[in-house]
Design a protein around this nucleic acid. Structure first.
Length: 828
DNA sequence: GCTCCATGCAGAGTT
DNA sequence: ACTCTGCATGGAGCA
């Protein structure tokens, strides 16, 4: 495996970088838990290795290494003071769990571990060794494959689907599903692609000898229970310090477990031979460990670097091969079982905080919503490099190097990708994804704004808040439809952690210079956005600790699905590449007989052509829904020392769309053709609200962009409550809000769109509560940057390992209170 | 005090 | 008389 040969130069580069950053880590560890437990959780998860106490000097013992200059990278662990096997016996009785704790207590590699069925050849052979079973017995079925996805986790020996000869007392719980369709579940060769794995097994065997590997943390059942209470408990532990204590206790197992989990997660893609082919100069290893802090910590860092490197370089290569393979199969109309390779599911499937985007199909089938999703159909999914979720990705696991790399090259089942989010989001609320009134879905979808699959947090927050079954169903239905219609783009997510898995593999400028420039650009473009986001997410409303990132990120993907569905229903061809430009909630003067619409100045100046003359220009805008082209005049009036921008000749457009006050228009540009697109979005009104609105023009809550109209007063509020669905999903106010925020996230350069969100939320008590509910901050004094905004330029897929390491090691990243500007400046 | 923007209103144009 | 055009005004938000 030539590709996997770790070049000394590369490693040295990484080491040098790590050397600089390692000093910072200690400081990062000592961070107290801030107001935002979720943030701290993220950081803690990502930086758990920082909790490791200084290693004992005797730990680094190279006596066991090869005598030649080169040694297997995996044999780094030969140097570890391996535990005795008996210490691991208790693991068998522990609740079966994925390696999610590895995600919690081991940072960088943790995020790339724990496919639910990723009982690796490692664990299996450990068991074999333990029980004196012939090591490579072909009678032992492979304990699960990536295609499995049932929650019904069993120990190897209990899986009826297999003939594994091990019993439950085996030392390492083997996670596997009841995937009887697993093409490999009875073929031990699937687990042993390398016939000559014995040598590697030796290495792995020694892992089990880690005398400190008690496994109590590793297999902590806490992490397999997708229960919010558990999560809260975890957060509580984190904040109370108990987590640190535990991490300290288990620190000595860190290194082998990092490797162990990594092997588990990649056992299908990286054979023992692959690992054996990773050669490092002994001197390099020694120096690396020394430079990385020495002792166990240094070795741990080195290990992670190596693993990251392997994943980055080796798995990428394999992924390409796999993509070609899968493409060929798809073209042939085949939907194969998940190959044994490329199980890069970086997260714990059973842990809602840590679930992988590589959602297992079986789980989706479980809820009955996705029965038409063919199992085991997987294709590589490439995400938009500009996916704002990527902000969350990095932010979610700032220390998770491996996760990031694994995420770059992960494979996501296409249907599950789309389905997963709405499978899980309702479960975040009450675990109820059932539907009672499918019509709600229709209603919601038809009332939804159309845009480019962009998020809609406000409404989704409302959804979560209310936990309305119908609404959940509507979302689920729509999302499901979207997933089935589109089958692409956005991976499912239960948590922000998932986003680490969704980094685009699109290669991008990966130099620091490029990143510097990119950060600068984004700082500029987001400065305004950031400002409004701050306001939006600041709230004085007390609220229980919420994994705000989780929710918000989930919502965004969730909403993307919904709006893709909406697109479809409203005849908007999804292949159109529309970029949100601006929107305007129509005022009475806009829908009157003047035939002109005042446009928000800032958005107009940013996104519409610059006007030289006051007469402006004529712009042909195609109605998104009807494809009718409206020739509108875009012009301005001098107003004092400023300008007022107007869209004229809008009378016919307004009338044809039946737009009224409170409705809104959204202007897009087709990024492919450059054409302007317009859509009039009618706000659904009940008789009550429309009558009320007609009788009593609502007051408006002014926003900086002037693009949000909030009916105020009892009538409007009552009407909004009557239209609960609409309220949650995009009627009068919140629809505009949703589009606004969503589009803003879709296009970070759309500067002031979130303004409307803010203003709307202020004017709308319900919506305000929704935002407050999921706000990561409390009170204006805690003007934290919203999590999504905290990372100014983390475009997916454009970070090299060095950059990522550099980034995640940055103290700025460890400081949740830092603004993106600060971060960007510090990075620049 | 400045900016934004909703809207009033005067004047011009049209029927 | 009605419609259209364009400017002016004032309220609201913000620095």
């Amino acid at each position: 495996m030539k590709d996997a040969n770790v070049e000394t130069e590369d490693l040295n580069g990484m080491i040098g970088m790590k050397e600089q950053s390692s000093r910072k880590e200690t400081e990062m560890v000592t961070e107290s838990c801030g107001d935002n437990a979720a943030e701290f959780l993220d950081n803690s998860l990502g930086k758990a290795e920082d909790l490791i106490p200084p290693s004992s000097p005797e730990w680094t013992d190279y006596e066991c290494t090869e005598t030649d200059d080169l040694m297997d990278a995996a044999r780094i662990f030969d140097c570890v003071n391996l535990p005795v096997f008996e210490d691991l016996q208790d693991l068998g009785s522990a609740a079966p769990a994925t390696s999610s704790l590895g995600s919690a207590t081991t940072s960088s590699s943790s995020a790339s571990v724990s496919s639910p069925s990723s009982s690796s050849w490692v664990s299996r052979n450990i068991k074999l060794e333990a029980e004196g079973v012939e090591r490579h017995s072909s009678t032992c079925a492979a304990p699960g494959t990536p295609s499995g996805g049932d929650h019904d986790v069993t120990l190897c020996g209990t899986d009826s689907a297999t003939s594994c000869s091990y019993n439950q007392s085996t030392l390492v719980p083997t996670l596997q599903s009841h995937d009887h369709n697993n093409a490999c579940n009875s073929n031990a060769e699937c687990l042993y692609p390398d016939p000559d794995h014995s040598e590697k097994i030796d290495v792995l065997e020694e892992l089990q000898n880690l005398d400190l590997l008690d496994g109590s943390d590793v297999w902590d059942p806490l992490f397999i229970v997708p229960d919010s209470s558990v999560l809260e408990g975890l957060q509580s532990s984190l904040c109370s310090g108990s987590f640190e204590e535990r991490a300290d206790d288990s620190s000595s197992e860190e290194l082998p477990m990092v490797f162990f989990e990594w092997l588990k997660s990649n056992r299908d893609s990286i054979s023992p031979e692959d690992l054996r082919s990773i050669k490092l100069k002994r001197s390099t290893i020694e120096n690396a460990a020394k430079h990385l802090g020495g002792g166990k910590k240094g070795m741990l860092h080195l290990l992670k670097l190596i693993l990251a490197w392997v994943q980055n370089h080796h798995l990428q290569r394999k992924r390409k091969l796999y993509s070609s393979h899968q493409r060929a199969l798809n073209e042939a109309g085949m939907c194969t079982g998940t190959p044994a390779s490329y199980n890069f599911s970086g997260m714990d499937y059973f842990n809602p905080w840590n679930s992988g985007g590589m959602v297992q199909q079986q789980d989706h089938l479980q809820n009955g919503l996705y029965n038409d999703i063919p199992p085991s159909c997987t294709v590589p999914v490439y995400l938009n490099s500009g996916d704002p979720s990527m902000f969350g990705a990095m932010q979610a696991l700032p220390g998770s190097v491996d996760a990031i790399h694994a995420a770059k090259y992960r494979r996501i089942p296409i249907d599950d990708v789309a389905a997963g989010s709405f499978r899980d989001v309702p479960n975040l609320v009450n675990g109820n994804a059932g539907f009672t009134n499918p019509n709600d879905c229709q209603t919601i979808l038809q009332q939804s704004a159309v845009f480019d699959g962009t998020p809609w947090p406000a409404q989704m927050a409302a959804l979560l808040h209310q936990g309305s079954q119908n609404q959940q169903q509507a979302y689920c239905n729509s999302s499901l439809q979207a997933s089935q219609d589109h089958k692409y783009r956005f991976a499912a997510s239960q948590s922000h952690l998932d986003y680490t898995n969704y980094r685009s593999p699109i290669p991008a400028a990966s130099t620091k210079e490029a990143r510097k420039n990119r950060m600068a650009r984004q700082r500029r473009s987001m400065s305004h956005h950031h400002h409004h986001q701050n306001r939006q997410w600041s709230s004085s409303t007390a609220m229980p600790p919420q994994p705000a990132d989780t929710v918000n990120l989930t919502l965004m993907q969730y909403q993307r699905q919904t709006f893709m569905q909406t697109d479809r229903r409203q005849g908007w061809k999804p292949e159109k590449h529309l970029k949100f430009l601006l929107q305007k909630v129509l005022k009475q003067s806009d829908v009157g007989n003047l035939g002109r619409i005042v446009l928000p100045k800032k958005e107009a100046e940013i996104h519409l052509p610059e006007l030289e003359a006051r007469d402006g220009i004529s712009i042909a805008m195609e109605d998104i829904v009807t494809s009718r082209v409206w020739n509108l005049r875009y012009r301005f009036w001098p107003n004092n020392k400023s300008r007022m921008y107007l869209l004229e000749n809008t009378g016919d457009f307004v009338r044809s769309n039946g737009l009224q006050e409170g409705d809104f228009i959204v202007i897009y540009s087709d990024t492919k053709t450059g054409k302007y697109m317009i859509r009039g979005v009618k706000v659904p009104r009940s008789d009550t609200t429309s009558a009320s609105a007609a009788a009593t023009p609502p007051t408006t809550t002014k926003s900086a962009s002037g693009s949000c109209l909030i009916p105020d007063g009892e009538d409007a509020a009552a009407g909004a409550r009557v239209l609960k669905i609409g309220k949650s999903y995009g009627v009068p106010t919140s629809q505009a809000v949703g589009v606004t925020f969503a589009d803003s996230m879709a296009d970070a350069s759309s500067s002031s769109v979130s303004d409307a969100t803010h203003s709307c939320s202020e004017g709308d008590p319900f919506l305000r509560d929704m935002i407050n509910q999921f706000s990561p901050t409390k009170g204006p004094e805690n003007d934290n940057v919203p999590n999504l905004e905290r990372f100014p330029s983390l475009d997916s897929g454009d970070l090299t390992i060095e950059e990522i390491l550099d980034l995640v090691e940055s103290p700025d990243m460890a400081d949740p209170g830092k603004s993106p500007d600060n971060i960007g400046e510090s990075k620049a």
